[in-house]
Design a protein around this nucleic acid. Structure first.
Length: 749
DNA sequence: CGAAGCTAACTTTTT
DNA sequence: GTTAGCTTCG
């Protein structure tokens, strides 16, 4: 068993303080790479072994499920699996879901409640807007839902929101909010925000305030008001609240996160101790210098931190001005190829980061063409695929037949023969009776007078469909999850329907996804039968794409370049980071240009991206970019002005590569920089591109920052860079094979 | 009732 | 360049 001496070994002084200051409110301001996960896990271990706190009295809240899993693993290493699993760890959403499943009734919630994801919410809201015949251009589901979500994050309920609504337009918003909540209630559904709101109701009950003696919250800068109140309620009993965060990394304001939570922690929790963790164990000083000047240019900050690397110097941060998004992606691939071929890195040590998901496309194409293995994080997630959602809709109906959105999906696929007009009749009746659509189906089946508009074959089909759902539910209730899946699949003839609907290869891929989903269900068989379906549905609704990203030493299968948004990259780190698209329409995003506060958040997004890099960082932009199918000229991101020229090594060598372009799309202008287009080799042949940025020849004398002076023995052009063999004067160094631009070789004349 | 074909509107960022 | 949503036809 570990003792406290071991637990503190290897920690620096501020980390030790953060671990051992256990009583009362504590705020740890943790700069990037400052080892905060380490602090959190060691603190928990310290509480258990030094302070004799029962592990079940400790709660740790993380930002992602992946972080929760990692924390649990690291704790298992530290204190053993048996003890680690008794600590409660999870995200706000997953913890709320877990608790609400057990205690739905104590907050007046239907027992079989389900979670509505983005797509479900959208479908529901579209229906409400359509039912009211509102102009769908002024009232988009997206806009209304976003307003509702902000309201909920601020704890504004329907009544309060309505009271504050003065303009005719906002009154309609308020009414839609009310109708939306009503619809959710009838359907027995909660959206993501509701999880927090109902969760808050729950944890405000007395027993929760006695439950956790110590509460720890990670990424505190990204909490919203509802989460803040949850934290307050949970820590009210004992007052031992420990939060870790960094206001410089607050990037979720758009989702209701309130940066004031962290900035006012000392006000909200009187007597709070503040511990700063400034040491950075991740990046080289060259990278941190860039991060520092960028964040220091931010107008208002509560706590300025000086980023201090444990690794001095380092390779210079590169800047590359590319001609378009294809050129940019090729350059990045070149660099990755070079790093991997020279043995400096594996694919999994490289990450491409961008502001918007749409930017990933060019990189997917380029990486695919080069046969570089990659993984795309975000975009279309597995659980968002049509066939997966269709099957999940059926499974959700098994849990809760009142779930109208799922019922509509299930009616659509596999084709039930019940069309829009029948559905409208059912919906109208359901609305007038404050019931679900399934309730309407039951009414039709039991009362021949109900909904007379449904006649003949249509009526029979409705009855048959209702009976099928009812029958399946009866079966599924007592079945283990994998058999429940089989029952649903065979009863609905699900895979046959896919085979009929899609072309062969497409159908195969989709059936494969269906099988994979069924496969996942196997992980839930260890639970009691009555819990399996619910737990499965909850976790499926709450997994983020990053959650499935491999961690630790990559096995061969995971040795892939990671393509990811800077948002999702928060909390991750890579040896080599390529931040692309540093253009003024992308970062700061054009939608934020009118709002200084939001521009500041954009700056922090870039800061988060930069500080993901351990050893090498390359920044780039495209001078023109394809948007909406048109090439548009771009401007360099304004944030680049805050980085002194001397901090970046500019890599030139303009060349244009536009492999997917057809002749008809080529611009008529024949400016020199585009001249190479006609000579661009076909897609699959390796590109022979522009001249190297710096010329090196055999016999040249060069100087290297660390290795000193030497003579070039051999040189060869690799894509647009030069790989050189240098014989250094220093005999200890001897001969080295180097990539000229990464090694920052200087020619001595 | 459903499939095919057309138009318009569109992309931040996500639990 | 894509996709959702509409119209039209069988």
């Amino acid at each position: 068993m570990e003792n406290s001496v071991d637990l503190l070994a290897g920690l620096n002084n501020s980390q030790k303080r953060a671990v051992t200051t256990v009583d009362g409110p504590v705020l740890a301001l943790a700069g990037p790479g400052s080892g905060k996960t380490r602090v959190l896990t060691h603190r928990i271990a310290y509480l258990i072994y030094e302070k004799r706190v029962s592990p079940s009295a400790i709660l740790s809240v993380t930002f992602t499920n992946k972080a929760a899993r990692e924390m649990r693993e690291r704790m298992a290493n530290l204190i053993g699996e048996r003890v680690a699993e008794q600590v409660t760890i999870g995200t706000f959403h997953s913890l709320a879901a877990r608790w609400l499943r057990r205690e739905a009734r104590s907050v007046q919630l239907a027992d079989g409640w389900v979670i509505y994801d983005d797509d479900d919410q959208q479908r529901l809201m579209k229906r409400l807007i359509k039912e009211r015949n509102l102009p769908e251009k002024t009232f988009t589901a997206r806009a209304v839902l976003s307003a509702i979500s902000s309201a909920k994050s601020e704890l504004l309920d329907v009544a309060t929101y309505a009271k504050a609504s003065r303009s005719p337009e906002s009154r309609i918003y308020a009414e839609l909010y009310a109708q939306y909540q009503q619809a959710l209630r009838i359907a027995g559904a909660l959206d993501f925000d509701d999880l927090l709101l109902y969760g808050l109701d729950l944890v405000r009950q007395d027993r929760y305030q006695q439950r956790f003696r110590y509460v720890l919250v990670d990424e505190y800068q990204d909490t919203n008001k509802a989460q803040y109140e949850i934290v307050r309620a949970l820590s009210r009993g004992f007052g031992n609240i420990f939060v870790v965060g960094d206001d410089d990394q607050s990037i979720y304001g758009w989702r209701g996160a309130d940066i004031r939570n962290i900035r006012q922690f000392e006000v909200d929790f009187p007597g709070a101790q503040v511990i700063v963790l400034p040491e950075n164990y991740r990046s080289t000083q060259a990278i941190l210098d860039v991060a520092q000047v960028l964040i220091d240019a931010s107008p208002k900050r509560a706590h300025r931190k000086i980023l201090k690397a444990q690794i001095p110097g380092g390779e210079p941060v590169l800047w590359r001005d590319c001609s378009d998004q294809n050129d940019e992606s090729q350059r990045v691939c070149d660099a990755i190829d070079r790093l991997v071929k020279s043995g400096v890195a594996r694919y999994a040590d490289c990450a491409v980061m961008y502001r918007t998901n749409a930017q990933s496309r060019a990189f997917e194409e380029a990486l695919g063409r080069r046969r570089i293995p990659y993984i795309l994080v975000g975009g279309m997630r597995f659980y968002e695929r049509r066939e997966v959602k269709d099957l999940l809709a059926w499974m959700r109906l098994m849990a809760n037949p009142d779930d109208d959105v799922s019922l509509e999906r299930a009616l659509d696929f596999p084709n039930s023969g019940i069309g829009q007009s029948s559905l409208t009749h059912l919906q109208q009746w359901a609305r007038s009776q404050a019931q679900s659509v399934f309730g309407a189906m039951v009414a039709v089946a039991t009362d021949s007078q109900a909904i007379p508009a449904l006649k003949g074959a249509a009526r029979q089909r409705v009855i048959a469909f209702g009976a099928k759902v009812h029958h399946l539910r009866g079966q599924v209730r007592t079945l283990p999850l994998n058999q429940a899946f089989d029952a649903v699949l065979s009863e609905t003839k699900f895979t046959q329907a896919i085979a009929e609907m899609y072309d062969d290869s497409d159908a195969d891929a989709r059936i494969e996804n269906v099988n994979e989903l069924r496969q996942v269900s196997g992980e839930y068989l260890v639970l009691p039968v009555e819990e399996q379906l619910f737990r499965f549905l909850e976790e499926v609704a709450l997994v983020a794409d990053v959650d499935t990203l491999a961690t630790g030493e990559p096995v061969e299968r995971d040795n892939r370049v990671v393509c990811i948004t800077m948002h999702q990259a928060k909390g991750l780190e890579y040896d080599n980071v390529f931040i692309v698209g540093l253009e003024d329409e992308l970062i700061p995003h054009s939608r934020t240009h009118l709002f200084p506060e939001q521009i500041d958040e954009e700056r922090r997004i870039l800061y988060v991206g930069i500080t993901r890099a351990r050893k090498r960082l390359m920044l780039s932009r495209a001078q023109r970019r394809m948007t909406y199918g048109r090439y548009e000229p771009t401007l360099t991101s304004r944030f680049l002005k805050d980085i002194p020229k001397g901090m970046l090594q500019v890599t030139t060598g303009l060349g244009s590569v536009a492999p997917t372009m057809t002749r008809a799309q080529q611009p008529s202008s024949q400016s020199p920089q585009y001249r190479t287009w006609n000579d661009t080799p076909p897609v699959h042949t390796p590109s022979v591109s522009a001249a190297p940025s710096v010329e090196f020849a055999v016999g040249d004398r060069v100087r290297h920052q660390r290795f000193g002076e030497g003579i070039i023995m051999a040189a060869k052009v690799v894509d647009d860079d030069v790989e050189v063999l240098v014989n250094f004067a220093d005999k200890v160094v001897g001969e080295k094979r180097l990539i000229a631009s990464f090694a920052r070789l200087e020619k001595i004349l």
